[in-house]
């Protein structure tokens, strides 16, 4: 009952927004430019087979591959930077400045390099998701308490003990926050990648519908993309609650 009450304000607001949108769309009545929510849902239903069985799996694969590589790469880099100050000094500025490069502008080059294969899209996804994971994990390592480290030393702990029993648990909340940011970005990354060069995927499909002046057809895959993003976010949230039980959120 209490939980339901907490959901009431956002649900009301969303309902209100959808209502205004629908009313506006009907008033304007140019469905290929401004389709109403009902039109989008109907189109989603009409296109369900091709969307759910062809384009959704293609995009999901890009997202999952991109995220996995990002986590692997980001965490390894964070561990390496934590282990060696020279590595930190060398890499940290590069990682930060890599975020100043407009990756969307770079994406066509990846198409040039990797062709229309899945890898051009995965590279774009990795490039925009590894940053939050690397930086947050590294900051997490750095957040380890110095006093606890000294206490562990007085207990005769070695480097490996301190890393596994202090640094890793200290970094975990930071890593989870980074992962939350990364999963939402991963959807954007995959969609951008597909816009620029793909033969399947929700981003590609949305763009194709644009050329056909099918407004509702543009929105339908976007709805699915958002749903993927929300699901991934909730999944990470759940994982966080389980892994960080002690925080009692």
């Amino acid at each position: 009952m209490k939980k339901w009450k907490a959901f009431l304000p956002p649900v009301t607001l969303v309902m209100f927004f959808i209502f205004i949108w629908e009313a506006g769309a009907r008033a304007v009545n140019v469905s290929f430019i401004l389709p109403g929510p009902s039109g989008i849902i109907i189109r989603l239903w009409e296109l369900k087979e091709i969307l759910f069985f062809e384009h959704l799996p293609a995009t999901s694969l890009i997202i999952l591959l991109g995220l996995s590589i990002s986590v692997l790469l980001g965490v390894s880099l964070a561990v390496w930077m934590h282990a060696s100050q020279a590595v930190e000094r060398a890499f940290y500025p590069i990682i930060i400045s890599s975020q100043m490069i407009p990756i969307i502008a770079l994406a066509p080059i990846f198409v040039l390099w990797f062709g229309y294969s899945i890898w051009s899209k995965v590279v774009v996804t990795v490039l925009i998701t590894f940053f939050p994971i690397t930086v947050s994990t590294f900051d997490g390592f750095r957040s380890s308490s110095k006093e606890l480290k000294e206490l562990l030393l007085t207990m005769g702990a070695g480097k490996k003990d301190i890393f596994l029993k202090l640094n890793v648990p200290s970094a975990l909340p930071y890593f989870m926050s980074g992962l939350k940011v990364a999963v939402t970005l991963s959807v954007i990354g995959a969609a951008i990648g597909e816009w620029l060069g793909a033969q399947a995927g929700l981003g590609y499909f949305s763009r194709r519908m644009m050329t056909q002046f099918d407004g509702a057809g543009v929105f339908a895959p976007i709805v699915l993309l958002s749903v993927i993003g929300i699901c991934l976010f909730l999944l990470v949230n759940l994982l966080e609650k389980y892994v960080l039980k002690w925080r009692k959120i």
Binding site: S145, E147, L151, W246, R247
Partner: peptide, 9 residues
Amino acid sequence: PQQDLLMPW
């Protein structure tokens, strides 16, 4: 130590 320094996790 002065603070209990228990690991919260």
